[in-house]
Simulated assay, not measured.
Amino acid sequence: MKTRQILTPLLLAAGLLLCAAARAEMPRMELTAGFHRIEAEVAANQDDRMQGLMQRSRLGAGQGMLFVFPMQQRHCMWMKNTLLPLSVAFLDEEGRIINIRDMQPQTEDNHCADAPARYALEMNQGWFATRGIKPGMKISGVQRAPAPR
């Protein structure tokens, strides 16, 4: 019985470390919005897209997450288990912004692209607005993202 009491917390801690390590393995790339630099983690596979920024307690200035979808369609995002207020920009094949939505933490509201999108870029809430970045503008560098799987 004592062995189980000791092993259970150790196994839980090991599992948490593995989850953190797996999340840290997402590739990173540089994107730009005008002269603004973005350091983006890239969620190009189904597991990474499902995990997204869930359970993160902070996101650095100029950091975000680029979601690469296998097909261009009207994708939607939600904030279940996401602790940070975020803004999401939906992008077409060339990286042109279709629309931007603000999203509140720990909600299950759908935030959808207004037209078929190939990418979604999540940043700290207000990042796009405070820099005057609007629909129709281009996020450069998305074409170098890993192919979706």
Rank of each mutant, 00 (worst) to 15 (best):
E94S: 15
P105S: 11
R96F: 02
L16T: 05
M79P: 01
E41P: 00
A33K: 01
G64M: 05
P146H: 10
A117W: 04
P85I: 03
Q72L: 10
F35K: 12
A20S: 13
H36R: 08
T82C: 04
Q63S: 14
A115V: 09
T130V: 12
F69E: 05
Q5D: 12
M50C: 07
A89R: 01
A117P: 02
C76Q: 12
D92G: 05
M103D: 08
D109M: 09
P9Q: 09
E39Q: 14
D102H: 06
P105Q: 11
I133E: 00
D47A: 14
R96A: 10
W127V: 02
S87R: 04
C76E: 12
L11R: 09
L86D: 02
T107S: 15
C112V: 05
E41N: 03
A40D: 02
M54F: 00
A21N: 12
L84Y: 06
R37F: 09
R23C: 02
Q46D: 11
E94L: 10
A13F: 13
C19E: 11
Q143H: 10
D47C: 07
M54W: 00
L7S: 06
P148Y: 13
N124S: 10
R58E: 15
D114M: 10
I100E: 02
L91G: 01
P70I: 13
M77T: 06
L121P: 00
E93F: 09
R4H: 10
Q72Y: 04
L12T: 14
R58M: 10
E41G: 02
N45K: 10
Q55T: 09
C112I: 05
R23L: 11
L10E: 04
I139W: 01
I133L: 04
P9W: 08
A89M: 05
R56Y: 00
D102A: 10
A145G: 07
A145P: 04
C19S: 12
E39F: 05
A147E: 15
D48P: 00
R118H: 12
Q5F: 12
A14M: 11
W127R: 03
F35A: 15
P9M: 07
D114K: 12
D114N: 13
M79Q: 04
L17C: 13
G64H: 04
R149I: 09
R96W: 01
R118M: 13
A43I: 09
D102P: 03
N99T: 06
P27E: 12
F35E: 15
V88H: 02
I139K: 01
K134Q: 14
G15M: 10
R58T: 11
M26E: 11
I97A: 02
C112W: 06
K80G: 00
P148T: 09
L66D: 03
H75Q: 15
P70N: 15
S87C: 07
T107C: 09
R37N: 05
P135V: 06
V88F: 03
